[in-house]
Amino acid sequence: MIFGFDPSRDPRKILIWTLVALGGLVMIMPFAFMISTSLKGRGEVYDLRLVPLAPTLENYTYLFRETKFVRWFLNSFSIASISTISVLFFDSLAGYVLCKYRFKGRQVVFVAILSTLMIPTEMLVIPWYVMSKNMGWLDTYWGIMFPGMITGFGVFLMKQFFETVPDALIDAARIDGLGEFRIFWEVALPLVTPALSALAIFTFLGSWTAFLWPLIVTNSSSNYTVPVGLASFSGEFSTEWNMIMTGAAVATIPTLVVFILLQKYIIRGVILSGVKG
């Protein structure tokens, strides 16, 4: 409703428009400063002007040549991708079973899964660490990934969405001769793609920006993810703001790509999850 209105007609809309514009400005400022700082030389960092006096790409050159940023980027990317694929598969499978099958203890299992949503990561970090240590997973990719391979949130989201798939469709597929897994894969799953897209975005972004657990479980700098790597630019005595901003600027790119590719689904997915959830 915001677009295509004529402000001269309705003063209330001028107010709304102004507020929205201000909000947008507030949102975009950190990004503008991030880009701007990444283009500043070391001496100019604490000079808070938006347009650098002497723009330079030396931060970028340094980031790619002298640090392990490329490695961190690939680490983050593969971990986020694998987690996302795993979450999409297992969460939708679990959600489907909880939604469409009647079996003893179904409700108990569902409540148990939901209850995991109420435990904050900070509380889980210690048991995860102990577990990783016992299993020999410390400082490995699997160590970083394992807590996020299946998520309670995703199971919940998918279960709710599978409610929209009519049972008769599943019965029809049974009569058509499909096996149970293929009914899930070929009939039910294609009908919940908006939910899958939303879940993919949530999971990918969540994994991409995860900080606390990767920081704890990794030791060697070659196993760092992007956020942990960027944090390492902040030392005990000084913080290389220009490097952090440069790394952050590059790290924003995949999230932008994911969002642009899937935005029509995420908006639909968020709306739907609002309705369904």
Partner: peptide, 14 residues
């Protein structure tokens, strides 16, 4: 169901 040599038509078409 597939081995019973039947076919079914549902209320909401399915």
């Amino acid at each position: 169901p597939k081995d019973r040599n039947i076919a079914m038509v549902f209320q909401n078409y399915a």
